[in-house]
């Protein structure tokens, strides 16, 4: 029996988020949120481990209450239980404060063997939370893993594989461990519709809502005050002005193209 905890973020669908250059803010109104895509791969990994080795899958998310919708999807995929960490005092957290809060909540769950995160979120794309949670809990962590090779249930030793730029690494560690996975390492299963309906109707049975009072966290390490970093401004990313010379194909056009490539020192 393995206890798995999957961290899930309910993120605005960044593809729909537009930037208001006048106000210098992101326009989030009317933008639907989604489960951070690699987190689906994390859930899938947890479920496949559960299928092979047995165990329980918890999903945890530090998000506003609207994230309930996402947690129901996680339940529908097959997670046993979901915990929504929501409290105004959690707001404004950077990756360190988020990781601390998540780590304290995971500690509260009690026994955990494998903690799985998506390797990064589509909105902030830091990839920090996995390693930071691992360090805060004082357990092993490996990012960018590709697959689990073996788990020895008696000695509680896990063997896993990950890919780096110049090769493949195989690691071994005693449980518990934190791992993070990316999009494409597996195919997340479709959330079982009837289970989603069950989660909708009997939400309390599947999803617990925790606030600050439910976890043992130090106040100065959560939320904005627990965050060492500050965002001071946001600007629209400058776009490269393209030349946009478009021609109907002819052989001369290719010569012109080579000329342009020379002019721009590309060739």
């Amino acid at each position: 029996m393995l206890n798995m905890v999957v961290g899930v973020k309910w993120v605005p669908d960044t593809a729909d988020v537009k930037f208001d250059p006048a106000k210098g803010t992101l326009i989030r109104e009317g933008v639907e949120s989604i489960i951070n895509p690699p987190d689906l791969n994390a859930i899938e990994l947890a479920l496949s481990i559960k299928e092979k080795y047995g165990g329980k899958v918890y999903v945890i998310s530090m998000s506003p209450p609207a994230a309930l919708k996402g947690l129901k999807i996680a339940i529908a995929m097959g997670a046993d239980k979901a915990i929504l960490l929501t409290d105004r005092r959690f707001a404004g957290a950077d990756t360190l404060a988020t990781s601390y809060t998540l780590a304290m909540a995971i500690r509260k769950i009690g026994s955990y063997d494998i903690i799985i995160f998506g390797e990064e979120t589509i909105d902030s794309a830091t990839g920090h939370v996995g390693p930071e949670v691992g360090e805060i809990l004082g357990i092993s962590h490996v990012s960018y893993i590709k697959r689990i090779l073996n788990i020895d249930l008696t000695s509680k030793i896990i063997e896993l594989e990950r890919e780096v730029e110049n090769g493949v690494e195989v690691y071994k560690s005693k449980l518990p461990i934190v791992v993070s996975v990316g999009v494409g390492v597996n195919n997340p299963r479709y959330p079982i519709p009837i289970r989603r309906l069950h989660a909708e109707i009997e939400t309390d049975k599947y999803i617990e809502i925790w606030g600050l009072s439910n976890i043992d966290a130090e106040l100065d390490r959560i939320g904005l005050q627990g965050s060492p970093t500050r965002v001071i401004k946001i600007i629209a990313a400058p776009t490269v002005q393209r030349r946009m010379e478009v021609f109907q194909y002819s052989k001369e056009v290719l010569n012109l193209m080579v000329k342009r490539l020379r002019e721009c020192e590309v060739l």
Partner: peptide
Amino acid sequence: RELAPSIAARLETGITAD
């Protein structure tokens, strides 16, 4: 990208990615 956040968490300091 794996190492830096581990260090930051140990030192309880801020980190910015990428």
